[in-house]
């Protein structure tokens, strides 16, 4: 007869990072993080929360309590599709979608997102493609994402790709801007330089609503 495994679970305060919550709250859109009353409206309005191992409400609670590692490694932040339902419905007007963006950026910056997880890879590929050409090319980005995460999935998508190709909805050539690339490069370079000097993390000038 096998015994059920039991484990003990306790969180020691010294293992938490209280600065983490403050950092997220200092990001644009994060300013109302500490106003959360844990009502769960975000979780129940979220169409993806049913797939999340932790609901958006729990992510907020954990972020401000300093559960940095758990939050950044969580699938939840990557399942957010930015549909903004939570942001619109939140009775405390917390910009939850923006907080999810801040957490995604933090996870990418610290390279702690779940391994072989396609969503952050897609985000990075998209980011790089736009940096290179100024526009995104759907098919190239998707192919590169599958190659890096689940190459076998590509096969399943070939049929769809061909269908789209036949109907003129799949551009194989690289989509390019019709001029202005140099200007765009200068713009992005300067933005990055300025951000590295002082991160754009300041409170808003005025209430948004």
């Amino acid at each position: 007869m096998s015994h059920p495994r039991i484990t003990w679970r306790v969180k020691y305060q010294e293992d938490l990072d209280l600065a983490f919550g403050r950092e997220i709250a200092a990001r644009p859109g994060g300013e109302d993080l500490y106003r959360c009353i844990q009502c769960g409206t975000c979780s129940s309005t979220c169409p993806l929360s049913i797939y999340m191992e932790r609901t958006p409400r729990q992510i907020i609670a954990m972020a401000r309590a300093g559960f940095k590692d758990e939050v950044l490694a969580s699938h939840t932040i990557w399942l957010c599709t930015s549909c903004y339902a939570c942001t619109v419905d939140c009775p405390k007007q917390i910009k939850i979608t923006d907080i999810m963006y801040a957490l995604k950026q933090k996870a990418l910056g610290e390279k702690v997102y779940p391994a072989r997880f396609p969503i952050p890879v897609l985000a990075k590929e998209f980011f790089q493609a736009v940096r290179r050409t100024g526009r995104s090319n759907e098919s190239r980005i998707v192919v590169r994402m599958f190659l890096q995460t689940r190459p076998w999935k590509l096969l399943g998508n070939i049929r769809l790709g061909l269908k789209l190709l036949r109907r003129g909805r799949l551009a194989l050539r690289r989509e390019k801007m019709d001029g202005g690339q140099a200007q765009l490069r200068m713009l992005l370079q300067t933005t990055r330089r300025l951000e590295n000097q002082t991160p754009a993390r300041s409170p808003p000038l005025a209430e948004s609503h």
């Binding site: 897609l122 100024g134 754009a200």
Partner: peptide
């Protein structure tokens, strides 16, 4: 609009929102 570039959409914003806003702003300037 001539010479437009990517708006800075969802996936881009997950990496860096300020750059995303810069991308959007260029289109608005044009």
């Amino acid at each position: 609009l001539a010479h437009w570039n990517c708006c800075g959409a969802t996936a881009y914003m997950s990496v860096d929102e300020v750059q995303a806003f810069a991308l959007a702003a260029r289109n608005l300037c044009l």
